[in-house]
Nucleic acid binder design. Sequence first.
DNA 1: GAGAAATAGTTACCAATGTAATTATTTCCA
DNA 2: TGGAAATAATTACATTGGTAACTATTTCTC
Lengths: 169, 169
Amino acid sequence: MNQDFAYFEQGIDRIARQLPGMPQDQVVLNRLFFFVFKELDEAYNQRLAEYGLNSSSFLALAMMLSCDSNRLNPCDLSDALIASRTNVTRLADELVSSGWVDRQPSTADRRRVELSLTDAGRELVLQVLPGIWQLIERQWTDFSPAEVAEFDRLLRKMLSGLDRLREAA
Amino acid sequence: MNQDFAYFEQGIDRIARQLPGMPQDQVVLNRLFFFVFKELDEAYNQRLAEYGLNSSSFLALAMMLSCDSNRLNPCDLSDALIASRTNVTRLADELVSSGWVDRQPSTADRRRVELSLTDAGRELVLQVLPGIWQLIERQWTDFSPAEVAEFDRLLRKMLSGLDRLREAA
DNA sequence: GAGAAATAGTTACCAATGTAATTATTTCCA
DNA sequence: TGGAAATAATTACATTGGTAACTATTTCTC
């Protein structure tokens, strides 16, 4: 590991010794989550950079691939990527200028735009997907199916806890 | 939930039906992780914004609080926050200009700088910590101690899997 | 069916963070 | 002990993302 989570844990320990009332395990969990996220993000971006992609542009291409005629609106793409429409506009600019995506005004609803994969875009994503799946399989090798299921359950439960915070605010 | 994870899962389903060989559960897990992270980050930043803080500046203050004389080098802070030294320099600029942190050249090693909490900074972090701990407790309310421990274990195991990817590259 | 409200996309601007290069200082070792 | 290598901090620049404001169009509602 490049950088170590231990520095943070030591700091938390020192605070716990000074001040009463810290839910220490949960504090560590939240921060550990942050740390793991950074590693996850970095690992996949590193691989995708070999193809001139990053997580966002790759997922955008994959989501378009999944659709009928490889065609998708920026708005739906924004939902699928969990990204702002602003970000999707810029992403589309980038993908169009790379020649992977075509952008046409929609005839049915003139507020809309239709993004579709070009042949080059389709080829690219079909070429990249297997390598990424291989990476994912290697990443999760040590997890049994039961552990995968349990992790999924705990992540969704964590989501519920976070939703509760939002409602309270 | 503002934005929904379902859009992504549906896209993944559509791809899985078209192309063989996708480790679907693991793909969903990686993306779910990303989604949860965004919610986590947002929830705490929202709360901290009430005090003119964000996750980074708050953790910086907390880490300084944990140290002897509330004093810390930018370099050590960078390790504790898992942030680049560049980022810590800017963070320190911000905290100094807010009056929460004092920055002095080190006499022992003239390459170094010593950051220390001002009285105002100490008061601020001591005021904010209990509220954040309360938030954390509410967030994790539904988790039994066993679930917390299991989540911790799975997160660290996930970290090992990611480290393996790095070594392979 | 006309005005209000909602929706789609874009733009201008801002926030957070990272990499690479630079400077100053210290440490290592031949 | 003197030069090479390592370390600490900073700066300039790039990347990635978001919010708010705006325009154009569609839909809803009275």
